[in-house]
Computed example of a mutant assay.
Amino acid sequence: MQTIIPSDLNALKSLLTADFTAQWRNRRSVVLLLLVPVIILISWKGLVDKLGGAFVLSNCITIGLNAIGLMGYSNAIARDRDKGIFQRLRVAPVSARNIMISRLLVQLAMILLVTMAVFIAGYYADGISMSLTGYAVALLMSIAGGALYLGLGQAIVGLIKNPESVNAATRLVYFVFIMVGMFGELGNAGDIGMLGDQIGKIVKWSPYGVVRHIVSTGLEPATWSSDTTISLLLTIGYAIVFAAVGIKKFKWSSSR
Rank of each mutant, 00 (worst) to 15 (best):
M182S: 05
P163S: 07
A125N: 05
L152E: 06
T223P: 02
G84P: 15
K83I: 15
V38P: 05
I199D: 01
D191H: 04
G146T: 09
Y208H: 01
I199Q: 01
I5N: 02
S29V: 14
I61R: 00
N167S: 15
N26T: 10
L159T: 10
G134V: 13
Y149C: 05
S14P: 04
A76K: 06
N162I: 12
R256C: 10
I143A: 03
A92I: 13
I99T: 10
Y135M: 08
K13D: 09
F177M: 14
A54K: 01
I40M: 08
L150A: 04
G237K: 01
H213W: 08
I63G: 00
G181Y: 07
A96K: 02
K161W: 12
I160C: 10
M71S: 14
L152N: 04
I230R: 00
K50A: 11
L233C: 07
I63M: 03
S231T: 10
R27S: 13
P6L: 07
L148Y: 01
I101F: 11
Y174I: 13
F20K: 00
G122C: 08
G53C: 05
A18Y: 11
L51P: 04
F55Y: 11
N162S: 13
S74M: 07
S255E: 15
L152K: 00
L195D: 03
P6Q: 03
G53V: 09
G64L: 10
K201A: 09
L15G: 03
L186D: 10
Y73Q: 06
G246W: 11
V94N: 04
V118I: 08
G184I: 09
N162Q: 11
A67G: 09
T17Q: 06
S253N: 10
T3Q: 05
M116W: 06
W224I: 14
G218Y: 04
M130F: 15
A109F: 14
L33Y: 09
K45Q: 12
R97N: 06
R171D: 14
S253A: 12
I77C: 02
K45N: 12
G196L: 08
L15F: 07
L148G: 02
Y149R: 01
D80E: 15
A96F: 08
R171V: 15
V106H: 07
R27T: 08
G84Q: 06
G218P: 08
T235C: 11
N26M: 10
V30T: 13
L148E: 02
L9Q: 02
V137K: 00
M1W: 02
Q87H: 04
V48S: 03
L113M: 12
G134P: 11
W224D: 01
K248P: 10
S131G: 14
G151F: 08
L233K: 00
M110C: 06
L34A: 08
G158R: 01
Y123G: 04
G145W: 07
V166L: 10
T217Q: 02
A92N: 03
I156R: 00
S225K: 00
R28G: 13
S206R: 00
G181R: 01
G193D: 07
A78P: 05
L140T: 07
Y123L: 14
S206G: 01
